[in-house]
Simulated assay, not measured.
Amino acid sequence: MKKLALLAAAAALAMSAGPAFAAKKQVVIVVKGLDNPFFEAINQGCQKWNSENKDSEYECFYTGPASTSDEAGEAQIVQDVLGKADTAAIAISPSNAKLIAQTLKVAAPSIPVMTLDADLSPDDASLRKTYLGTDNYLMGFKIGEYVKKGKPNGGTVCTIQGNPGADNILRRAQGFRDALSGQKGIAALAGEGGWTEVSGCPVFTNDDGAKGVQAMTDILAANPKLDAFGIMGGWPLFGAPQPYRDLVGPLKDRIASSDFVIGAADTIGAEVDIAKEGLVNALVGQRPFEMGYKAPSVMIDLIAGKKVEDPVFTGLDECTKDTVDTCIQR
């Protein structure tokens, strides 16, 4: 009897405590893969929001497949998250835009859906409420401007890309080509603006740094007179920094004189140090921490039915060897 009385007292105490014992509703961020430091920066933003909003009824929950190459795994996680009763809203960085769109069509979620970092294709944009992240076309365009500034008369170029189904990377590549060609919508550079993409390019590396460096090695071996690389994600630099240094180090003098030009995306990990070392002409960086920090508030506004702009851009940071000490916004 004494034990029952104690249990009853404990239950009464829990009931009187009310919401403090209730599980929080989750605003969920699903990224392409947990193996990428870019997405870890998004997680840090998510956790910062949690630390500043401990009294909120919502909690930012970060998840994704173990590897950025696991497109099916990401789609399964999205499906699972949408099936949970405590999921109040979801922000997705689609590794494969079409696959995630199909997942959303089948799931037909009744909660707000937004995209983060990478968007759905324009044809599927109605499946989400807004996009929060980088203006990826502008990012690619700026990388192209730096390459064009270094080689104003044009030359041969190769783009290193990530996942062929990732909308954000495809938008960057389009912006890059448009900047070099001076035209809109060029599918492949074949002399426009003086620029030609070499055979075998673009190269898709599934966001793998080592594959990116190997692809650059192979392209340089096949095209010793190559003039430029446009790297649409920082994977070779932050994912395999020493192999990148080993490959590009012998080209340092050519990079310094803009005889050879490398423009790359992102400013994370070892990338800024690599820029200081003069092993890349320019970096155009995103703000992943800001994405992760802002996403919960945007999702909560969507839950409340408030008007949210579409898109919500988080800005860019442009870094060269001469500006790396001050180029990144904090």
Rank of each mutant, 00 (worst) to 15 (best):
Ala91Trp: 04
Asn223Phe: 00
Tyr293Ile: 05
Gly278Cys: 14
Asp310Ala: 10
Met15Gln: 10
Gly73Lys: 10
Gly234Phe: 00
Phe313Met: 09
Lys48Ala: 15
Ile328Met: 13
Gly239Cys: 07
Gly200Thr: 11
Leu99Ser: 10
Asn153Leu: 11
Met299Leu: 13
Gln214Pro: 02
Ala190Glu: 09
Val31Gly: 01
Ala108Asn: 14
Lys32Tyr: 00
Lys321Met: 10
Lys294Asp: 07
Pro164Cys: 06
Gly154Pro: 04
Leu247Glu: 08
Gln47Tyr: 07
Ile92Cys: 05
Ala8Ile: 12
Lys184Phe: 02
Leu180Phe: 05
Pro250Asn: 09
Ile90Val: 15
Thr314Pro: 04
Ala8Phe: 12
Gly83Asn: 08
Val157Glu: 05
Ala5Arg: 09
Ala101Asp: 09
Ile274Trp: 00
Leu7Trp: 13
Gly18Leu: 06
Arg172Pro: 06
Lys294Tyr: 03
Gly193Arg: 06
Gly233Ile: 13
Arg245Ile: 15
Phe204Asn: 13
Ile303Tyr: 09
Gln161His: 08
Glu318Pro: 02
Thr63Arg: 05
Thr267Gly: 10
Leu104Arg: 02
Leu82Gln: 05
Asp246Ala: 15
Lys225Gln: 13
Ala41Gln: 14
Ala75Gln: 08
Lys321Glu: 08
Ala11Phe: 04
Gly144Leu: 06
Val27Ser: 04
Lys84Ala: 11
Gly209Glu: 01
Gly285Phe: 03
Pro224Ala: 05
Leu6Gly: 03
Lys24His: 06
Ala228Phe: 09
Leu138Pro: 00
Gly150Ile: 12
Glu59Met: 11
Pro109Gln: 13
Phe38Trp: 13
Ala66Pro: 01
Ile77Trp: 01
Arg172Asn: 13
Asp135Ser: 10
Val324Thr: 15
Met232Gln: 13
Phe39Asp: 05
Gln47Gly: 03
Gly162Asn: 11
Lys3Ala: 10
Glu309His: 03
Ile111Gln: 05
Lys105Gly: 07
Val78Glu: 01
Val31Met: 02
Lys184Gly: 00
Thr326Phe: 15
Gly140Lys: 09
Ile92Leu: 08
Asn168Met: 04
Cys327Leu: 13
Gln102Phe: 02
Leu170Asn: 15
Gly33Thr: 06
Lys184Pro: 00
Gly33Ile: 03
Ala221Gly: 03
Ala23Lys: 12
Ala10Glu: 07
Ala222Leu: 08
Ala85Thr: 10
Lys129Ala: 14
Ser93Trp: 00
Met1Thr: 12
Glu271Val: 06
Leu316Asp: 11
Asp253Met: 13
Asp273Ala: 15
Lys54Val: 13
Ala97Glu: 06
Ala89Pro: 04
Glu145Gly: 06
Ala210Ser: 12
Gly182Val: 12
Asp167His: 03
Pro19Trp: 08
Gly200Pro: 07
Leu247Tyr: 07
Gly212Trp: 00
Lys276Cys: 09
Gly249Pro: 04
Asp86Glu: 12
Val272Met: 15
Arg254Leu: 11
Ile42Pro: 02
Pro236Ile: 04
Pro241Lys: 09
Tyr137Gly: 07
Asp55Gln: 14
Ile160Lys: 01
Glu197Trp: 03
Gly278Phe: 08
Ala91Arg: 05
Ala8Met: 13
Ala41Pro: 02
Asn43Lys: 15
Lys129Cys: 07
Asn96Asp: 15
